[in-house]
């Protein structure tokens, strides 16, 4: 929690004099929602067992994030302060319902694989936190860039996890076999425990990079 707060203050401090491209870039790397802010963990762990699931989930979340950020930002002067969280959740729930039906129409198989986790995008803390911390205070253009950056950063993180888990657990990426036939699969990586371990390892990598950077300075 403290890490998250520190990020936020740092981010608000240099908001005034940063170019608008920065809104986009920060979500991808410096404030990556998964690896740095540790937000929206549930879908990250649950549907990242294959690369394709992870990618689909990431894109669906990015879409909802983009649409809700645009709407929240354009309505920011009309929503009374007391009921803002409830209104944000209603806006998000509307877009999630639309996404749910759209995915069902595109591919029933994918819909089955992701299961209830599409509906659970509603309670992804990432989306609500962007609506509250950014879109409700900034113009539509800025909010759109912010949502795009954060959404792509989230998708990127999900893909990192999904690719590693599928590669280790199934010996393939996007169902294309990578390792030779006699590769012994690490079944544990596909199982729930593998999700925890893979995410822990990625965070370790990011922590190590951060520690290195501060030591060099």
């Amino acid at each position: 929690m403290s890490k998250q707060n520190k990020n936020k203050t740092g981010f608000f401090a240099n908001l005034e004099n940063s170019p608008s491209t920065d809104e986009f870039i920060k979500g991808l790397w410096r404030d990556n929602p998964v690896f740095v802010q540790v937000l929206g963990m549930c879908p990250v762990l649950a549907v990242s067992n294959t690369a394709i699931n992870a990618l689909a989930m990431g894109l669906a979340t990015a879409f909802v994030l983009l649409m809700s950020n645009i709407l929240v930002s354009s309505l920011r002067n009309f929503i009374p302060k007391q009921v803002r969280i409830a209104s944000y959740i209603l806006i998000i729930a509307t877009f999630v319902t639309m996404t749910d039906y759209a995915i069902q129409a595109i591919s029933v198989e994918l819909h089955k694989a992701l299961g209830a986790f599409i509906s659970l995008i509603v309670v992804n803390c990432l989306i609500l936190s962007r609506a509250e911390a950014f879109a409700s205070k900034n113009t539509i253009g800025k909010s759109m860039l912010d949502a795009l950056g954060m959404g792509l950063g989230f998708t990127f993180a999900l893909f990192c996890l999904g690719a590693v888990r599928e590669l280790m657990g199934n010996g393939s990426i996007f169902n294309i076999p990578i390792f030779p036939d006699n590769y012994q699969e690490w079944v544990v990586m596909i199982l729930p425990a593998g999700g925890f371990f893979t995410l822990a390892l990625w965070l370790l990598l990011f922590n190590a990079a951060k520690v290195n950077r501060t030591e060099v300075r």
Binding site: L39, M41, C42, P43, L45, A46, L120, P192
Partner: peptide
Amino acid sequence: LAYFLGIC
């Protein structure tokens, strides 16, 4: 631990 719900 199995469904990853309520991780936050």
